[in-house]
């Protein structure tokens, strides 16, 4: 194969990619925080024995786990405004789609973590007079969160990559910008290769760092 790679035009347009990367990082930051904190609330609700809390949480998880994120984003962008009269920007539609999906998945991670904590820990908290909420906050969650950290990291990586789905409603992020450049310069091969490289270069060091943190945290348990 003798394809002549031409990355020169990409470098001339590095600002376009930079703006895209900023959009990606913003999307990741907002959806990761919303998704993982919301997921914690839903995960706890799902754990509780009170049906009025557990059932809505369960329905939420089932709905948003089983609908593709891409479909959700498109739905929030095109269908939601017609049904409610509320305009959704590309940003908002993508944030809704990705964070609701992340909430559903991370809720299950948190719930599994909470359930993995030995019953004796609940008993010990209860026996010194702690309430359910105090035991949950002081005893159960710290232990559970430490255990699910690898699974959460995994989810975080997934959320970061899911941000590219926002390009479907023309939200300005890396993939969307690459498409722009590809259309202008007729160099899709270089443009999309650049997207792949950017994602790898940003994610790889972060993931390595989380491994170090995980190892440090697990050491205090030994």
């Amino acid at each position: 194969m003798d394809y002549n790679w031409d990355f020169a035009t990409l470098f001339q347009n590095w600002r376009v990619f930079w703006i895209g990367l900023q959009g990606t990082l913003l999307m990741f930051g907002v959806t990761a925080v919303l998704g993982m904190s919301g997921g914690l609330v839903i995960g706890i609700m799902r754990y509780m024995k009170t049906p009025i809390l557990a059932w809505p949480a369960r329905a939420f998880v089932e709905i948003f786990r089983n609908v593709p994120v891409l479909v959700q984003i498109i739905w929030f962008y095109y269908a939601f405004p017609i049904l409610t009269g509320v305009e959704t920007s590309p940003f908002l539609a993508a944030v809704l789609g990705i964070s609701l999906n992340t909430m559903a998945f991370s809720a299950e991670i948190y719930r599994a973590g909470i359930q993995s904590v030995e019953k004796g820990q609940w008993e010990a908290g209860k026996a010194i007079g702690m309430s359910f909420a105090q035991t949950m906050r002081r005893i159960i969650l710290p232990v559970a969160l430490k255990r699910v950290l690898p699974a959460l990291t995994n989810r975080g990586i997934e959320v970061f990559k899911m941000s590219t789905l926002a390009s479907v409603v023309a939200y300005v992020e890396t993939l969307n910008q690459a498409k722009l450049i590809a259309d202008l310069n007729y160099n899709p091969i270089e443009s999309y290769t650049a997207v792949a490289v950017i994602f790898f270069v940003v994610l790889y060091p972060v993931v390595q760092a989380t491994y170090v943190i995980e190892r440090k945290l697990s050491r205090s348990d030994q």
């Binding site: 030995e118 004796g120 820990q121 008993e123 010990a124 209860k126 026996a127 010194i128 007079g129 702690m130 309430s131 002081r138 005893i139 710290p142 232990v143 430490k146 205090s220 348990d221």
Partner: peptide
């Protein structure tokens, strides 16, 4: 909860809080 705080209980399987030091375990309640 109030009642339990006035009664000490010790279990067969200790149930110490693994994420806290010995001192923190005793201070927590």
């Amino acid at each position: 909860c109030k009642l339990r705080s006035r009664i000490g209980m010790v279990f067969q399987h200790f149930n110490l809080f693994p994420h806290m030091s010995v001192l923190q375990n005793v201070m927590e309640g």
